[in-house]
C-alpha cells in the first residue's frame, strides 16, 4: 500500500475528530451549565486524543520527516478533509447537540467497521476510540430527547437546528477515488454498508424526541474534497495562530 494514499484516507477520518474537537473546545468555560460545559470539553479532549493517534500514524508513514504537529498546524484549508458538518458553528446549545448526535452515531458505526480493517494500527485506534465514542452518543442522544421533548422553546430550537444541519449528514458517507482504493484493499470502511441503519437509528431517536425528521432530499457536500464553508477559515485562523506567528515553536 502506498503511504500517500493511506494518509489521504486517514485524514478523512482524523480531520473530522480534530475540527469537531476544536469546535467543542471553544465551549471551555462557556457551556450553558457547568455539567454540560465539562461534558462537551471532555468529549473534545477524547476527539483530540484520537486525532493525535491518527496523526502520529500519518507521521510514521511519511517519508519526508513530517511530525504530528506539522500535520495538525501547517496544512492549508484545502488540505483538510473533514466534512462540513463538524465545522458548523456553535450557534446555540441545540445546534451543538444535534451536530454532535449526527456525528456521534456515524462515528460509532464507522469505528465498529474499522475494527475489522486489515491495518493493525487502525484496528488498535478503533478499538481504543470506540469505547469513548459509546459515551459520546449516549450523552448527545440523551440531550436530543431532552431538548425535543422538553419545553416549547427547547423543542422549537432543536427542530430548527435539526432542519438546518440535516443537509450535512449525507456527506459523512462520501468517499473519494483514493478512499475507494483503500476500501477495496480491505483497510478502509465501506460506509454505504451502514448508511441505511444510520438513518433508521437517528430517525427513531428523533421521533422519540417528538421532532420531525426533515424530508429534504438535497444534501450539501464539499469538505471531503477540501472545499469548506466560510467557517473553516476562522477555525484554522484560531487553531493555527501560534504556529503561524511563531514558526516551529514547541509546546
Amino acid at each position: 500500500m502506498k503511504s500517500k494514499e493511506l494518509s489521504h484516507y486517514i485524514f478523512g477520518i482524523a480531520d473530522n475528530a480534530l475540527i469537531l474537537g476544536q469546535r467543542l473546545s471553544e465551549l471551555c468555560g462557556h457551556g450553558p451549565t457547568l455539567e454540560t460545559d465539562i461534558a462537551l470539553t471532555n468529549i473534545a479532549l477524547d476527539l483530540l486524543g484520537q486525532t493525535r493517534t491518527y496523526y502520529q500514524y500519518i507521521a510514521n508513514l511519511s517519508t519526508d520527516g513530517l511530525t504530528e504537529d506539522d500535520v495538525a498546524f501547517l496544512r492549508k484549508e484545502r488540505e483538510y478533509r473533514n466534512v462540513l458538518l463538524v465545522e458548523q458553528p456553535n450557534t446555540d446549545f441545540a445546534y451543538i447537540i444535534i451536530r454532535q448526535y449526527f456525528f456521534d452515531v456515524f462515528h460509532y458505526m464507522f469505528l465498529k467497521e474499522l475494527q475489522k480493517s486489515k491495518d493493525v494500527s487502525l484496528v488498535a485506534i478503533a478499538n481504543k476510540s470506540i469505547k469513548e465514542v459509546g459515551y459520546h452518543f449516549q450523552f448527545s442522544g440523551d440531550w436530543v430527547k431532552r431538548l425535543g421533548d422538553g419545553t416549547d422553546e427547547s423543542h422549537q430550537k432543536a427542530q430548527q437546528a435539526l432542519n438546518d444541519l440535516w443537509v450535512f449528514t449525507d456527506e459523512l458517507f462520501h468517499t473519494s477515488e483514493i478512499d475507494k482504493s483503500i476500501i477495496e484493499s480491505g483497510i478502509g470502511v465501506e460506509t454505504t454498508s451502514f448508511k441505511e441503519n444510520y438513518y433508521i437509528q437517528i430517525s427513531n431517536l428523533l421521533k422519540e424526541a417528538t421532532l420531525d425528521v426533515p424530508e429534504i432530499q438535497y444534501f450539501q457536500e464539499g469538505g471531503k474534497q477540501g472545499i469548506h464553508s466560510e467557517h473553516m477559515g476562522y477555525i484554522l485562523a484560531e487553531m493555527q495562530h501560534m504556529q503561524r506567528t511563531y514558526p516551529n515553536m514547541k509546546w
Binding site: 465539562i38 461534558a39 468529549i43 477524547d46 459515551y135
Partner: peptide
Amino acid sequence: VSQFASTACKAM
C-alpha cells in the same frame, strides 16, 4: 448528575 465529570474517565 452528568455522564462526564472532572475528567473524561469519571461521571458525576
